[in-house]
Simulated scan of single mutants.
Amino acid sequence: MPKILISADLEGVSGVVHPVETNPERYDYERGRALMTADVNAVVAGVLEAEPTADIVVADAHGTFRNLLPEDLDPRVRLIRGKPRPLGMLGGLDSDVDGLLFVGYHARAGAGPAVLAHTKSDVVLGLRLDGRELGEIGLNAALAGQYGVPVLLLSGDDAACAELSELVPEATTIAVKRALGQAAAEILHPAVARERLRRAAATAMTRRAEIPPYRLDGPVTLEVDLYSPTTVDAATLIPGVARAAGARTVTFTGRDVAEAYDIVQLLVLLGQVKPG
């Protein structure tokens, strides 16, 4: 019985192109979260088509981590929701997981054209591990790799798919939209996208033995460019975090990716605190 973790974000979901569809305080959010739930269900169906005995855990990984509609989610899965929590977007990850699937993911900050591209939040302008520019895709793939878990599949726009393919060329990617800008895309009809997601997930499961984890051996050097100099000031109060040359960059050397990942989560939280 393979154990599968699905990490679901919202910006890369089929049909979603604008921040109003991803923000709980905006008018079109309910549509966005319904589309997100439907995309996840399509991927679940594909996983179980290929592996009927699979044990599937879904981690809600967007914003508040409370977006997926539990009552509409496939009843054969268990859902991890809410924050803060260990391992952030990959809540539920451990060395017993046999494969990780990214649903509704987006490209990193600075990528383009790419729909709703960012890294964690608007607090972060850029992020590098051992000198390589990564977004949420690369950071999460590297965290999974530390546990020996391969990324089997990613769905999102074409830019997000290309981002994973650079890191894990063996993984299955499914573009549900073609980016035309930060808030514009050529999209598939959601029903068509879901059918492609189902088929892609089934294919990914049949190929999981061929896909290696994306590993970055520790220690790892983290560099983060932050939007606000005030956040930089606060970040230097974290043991091990130092200000780099220039006003906006902080550095940290972690014993492994997991330690660096925790620092990124702390930096994002600090950036959301308004100065007194």
Rank of each mutant, 00 (worst) to 15 (best):
residue 72 D to K: 09
residue 244 A to W: 01
residue 97 V to C: 09
residue 270 L to H: 03
residue 251 T to S: 10
residue 149 V to R: 13
residue 91 G to R: 05
residue 83 K to H: 14
residue 100 L to R: 15
residue 29 Y to S: 11
residue 125 L to G: 07
residue 61 A to Q: 10
residue 54 A to T: 04
residue 45 A to H: 08
residue 132 R to L: 01
residue 58 V to N: 09
residue 148 G to F: 09
residue 130 D to M: 01
residue 1 M to Y: 11
residue 227 Y to L: 12
residue 109 A to G: 08
residue 226 L to V: 01
residue 139 L to Q: 05
residue 215 R to F: 01
residue 188 L to V: 12
residue 13 V to F: 09
residue 239 P to Y: 08
residue 179 A to S: 11
residue 49 E to N: 11
residue 209 A to M: 03
residue 29 Y to G: 10
residue 119 T to H: 02
residue 247 A to S: 13
residue 29 Y to F: 15
residue 231 T to N: 07
residue 90 L to V: 10
residue 139 L to M: 12
residue 16 V to N: 12
residue 189 H to N: 11
residue 2 P to T: 12
residue 29 Y to V: 08
residue 252 F to V: 02
residue 170 E to G: 15
residue 134 L to F: 03
residue 216 L to I: 12
residue 101 L to T: 10
residue 117 A to F: 06
residue 34 A to K: 12
residue 201 A to L: 03
residue 56 I to W: 10
residue 171 A to R: 06
residue 121 S to Y: 05
residue 233 D to F: 03
residue 229 P to S: 11
residue 261 Y to K: 09
residue 62 H to I: 07
residue 172 T to G: 05
residue 111 A to H: 09
residue 153 L to Q: 04
residue 23 N to C: 07
residue 11 E to H: 09
residue 262 D to Q: 15
residue 218 G to W: 04
residue 10 L to Q: 03
residue 220 V to K: 04
residue 201 A to W: 00
residue 62 H to A: 12
residue 119 T to A: 01
residue 7 S to L: 05
residue 42 A to T: 01
residue 263 I to P: 00
residue 254 G to K: 10
residue 127 L to S: 05
residue 31 R to A: 07
residue 30 E to M: 06
residue 66 R to P: 01
residue 65 F to V: 05
residue 131 G to P: 05
residue 136 E to C: 07
residue 216 L to W: 14
residue 98 D to K: 10
residue 126 G to M: 04
residue 34 A to I: 05
residue 178 R to G: 06
residue 90 L to I: 04
residue 55 D to S: 13
residue 120 K to L: 08
residue 241 V to N: 02
residue 36 M to H: 11
residue 99 G to V: 00
residue 232 V to D: 03
residue 17 V to I: 13
residue 183 A to H: 05
residue 211 I to T: 09
residue 245 A to M: 08
residue 192 V to A: 15
residue 225 D to C: 00
residue 191 A to D: 15
residue 255 R to K: 11
residue 92 G to M: 07
residue 159 A to Q: 11
residue 87 L to Q: 15
residue 79 L to Y: 04
residue 106 H to K: 15
residue 194 R to Q: 14
residue 83 K to M: 10
residue 81 R to K: 11
residue 266 L to G: 07
residue 185 A to I: 00
residue 160 A to G: 06
residue 211 I to G: 06
